[in-house]
């Protein structure tokens, strides 16, 4: 099977601090992969490197065999990597529908002049994007609220909307940064189902960072464990739970 996303010895240094070192991830199409690790292990840094917010200090990141380290985040998203944020970053003062339509921005095929002249091409494309966006919202059960301002949605629905907005960019791989943060157990349970279902429905690979172990163990097929920027373990949920290095990283070792 061909790899979709691969990091080769990806390293991120901030001055003297090595946030991530020699990381080698491999994501395959329709994969469901989790990254876990104690606080400050460098998980979000990995996301920021993949999405182009940080340029790796060393190593390479390949999307379908081509290096993407030199691209700007917008370009990387257009290439097929979409993400959500740890602290929700919706366009708060825009409607739910507009949030989705902005996700579809780079797939909206009319130029500036068509936009200003409001010509036929503009109308056709706007109609298409509007329809597609509403369908996407319907899948997430948000279509009845399409004209609400996104800041007025309840927290759980904001999380959902952010995932929907990322999907509107038509990604090949979806990066979720702590999707269950701040959710109650019931919402987390729903999210577990949602993530699986998104993967199957949209045929995307999902890479997620999460602290909620129950969610990670239940949903992920493979897990990478980071500690102090280094990968300390990799494998299925069952193996990870038994791995002595992981237990050490999370719980420490008993002094003899």
């Amino acid at each position: 099977m061909t790899t979709l996303l691969e990091t080769r010895k990806a390293t991120m240094r901030f001055g003297g601090l090595v946030a991530v070192s020699d990381l080698g991830l491999e994501i395959f199409p329709s994969d469901l992969v989790g990254i876990i690790g104690p606080n400050g292990a460098g998980k979000t840094t990995v996301f920021n490197m993949i999405t182009g917010h940080y340029r790796p200090s060393g190593g390479d990141i390949l999307l379908e065999g081509r290096s993407i380290v030199k691209y700007r985040p917008a370009h990387i998203t257009q290439k097929g990597i979409a993400r959500t944020f740890q602290n929700i970053r919706l366009f708060k003062d825009l409607s739910v529908l507009d949030n989705i339509r902005l996700g579809a921005h780079h797939r909206t095929g009319y130029g500036l002049l068509s936009n200003i002249l409001c010509n036929g091409k503009y109308r056709r494309e706007e109609e298409r994007i509007r329809k597609e966006s509403l369908e996407l919202l319907k899948i997430f059960g948000l279509h009845k609220k399409h004209d609400h301002l996104s800041k007025n949605l309840p927290y759980g629905e904001q999380r959902k909307l952010e995932i929907a907005r990322a999907l509107a960019t038509d990604p090949k791989i979806l990066l979720l940064d702590e999707p269950a943060a701040g959710m109650n157990p019931k919402e987390t349970k729903d999210l577990t189902g949602l993530i699986r279902w998104v993967r199957d429905e949209f045929k995307v690979a999902v890479l997620l960072i999460e602290h909620d172990m129950r969610l990670v163990m239940e949903v992920c097929e493979r897990i990478y464990v980071l500690d102090y920027g280094k990968m300390i373990a990799h494998g299925g949920p069952g193996d990870i739970q038994k791995d002595p290095k992981v237990i050490e990283a999370y719980l420490g070792v008993q002094d003899e």
Partner: peptide, 9 residues
């Protein structure tokens, strides 16, 4: 930042 992440240059 979100705009950039949504593929908007």
């Amino acid at each position: 930042i979100a705009a950039e992440s949504m593929g908007i240059a």
